[in-house]
Amino acid sequence: MSLSTKANELHSKMTEHSSDTLFKEDELMSFIGTSSASDLLQYTQELLNNNLIKILKQGDALMFQAIATNEANKISNMAEDEAMIYSYIESSGREGIWTKTIKAKTNLHQHIVMRCLKSLENQRYIKSIKSVKHPTRKIYMLYNLQPSIDVTGGPWFTDSELDSEFIDSLTTVIWRFIANKTYPSAFQSPSQNINPLQASYPHNYTGYVDINNIMDFIISSKITNIELAPNDIRSLCDVLVYEDKLESIESADQYKATWQSIVDGGFVNIDNDQEFSIFNNKSENVIDEEEDDLVYFDSWVLH
């Protein structure tokens, strides 16, 4: 690859900036100290021939982007079809591109596309990924990129499947953490200093937790190695609110556990002589009866 000095100078000046910088025509002219458009055309054509720059259109203006020398070498070593497919995969970024789209865009035969993809994959230039939105599609992206959240589905997905177990254990941990902060003796063994029937903080208690406290707790206790954003924690808290295990305190953007969730968790002793209410009724309190005497909640619907 032999480049003229001026072209070389232009390329090195362009690569001094970050790789995704776009340059205008006059910027390039100032790099090589010329005001003649035809000079610039000569050098940019030279760089273009050597795959060292890319031309993009932004509105009506033409923009230039530098390509690193090793990247250019990679592309130069590829076959023409491979390079074309590679350029489409590259432009799809972190979203990835579906094989069918590649075929439509390149107008190449299925076999050729497949062969090129296989060859690029073998050279570890590209990789195949699974999308949560379209689990059946074969999607490719550059080898060194991480798929976007849209593709992976965020932290709740493992191998493009909703990881219910992970979600359940996280919500349980969060609920326990909040319940501990909401009720002084929720998970403690009976003690002389605590009333066994109910122990609550006073109404003006301010020690309830917010999203940041939960984040800190999850990070410090190293429960998971998956990075969670505050929004993820909020969606977990929302789930707990839907389950009626938490209650949000809107004035302070905090959460507190509901007493019913402690009762349901079996952490409260319910006497057998307590009057029936739907809230304290546990499955073991069901009246023992014969098969003939059972009545079903939905019997009217199925009547």
Binding site: S189, S191, N195, Q198, A199
Partner: peptide, 24 residues
């Protein structure tokens, strides 16, 4: 109805860990 020890302030310290701090 015994209401004693049913309302605990947020300065409450776990009785199991620091017993001496619990005052009757």
């Amino acid at each position: 109805i015994d209401l004693n020890n049913s309302i605990l302030t947020h300065n409450f310290v776990k009785p199991a860990t620091i017993k001496k701090r619990v005052v009757s």
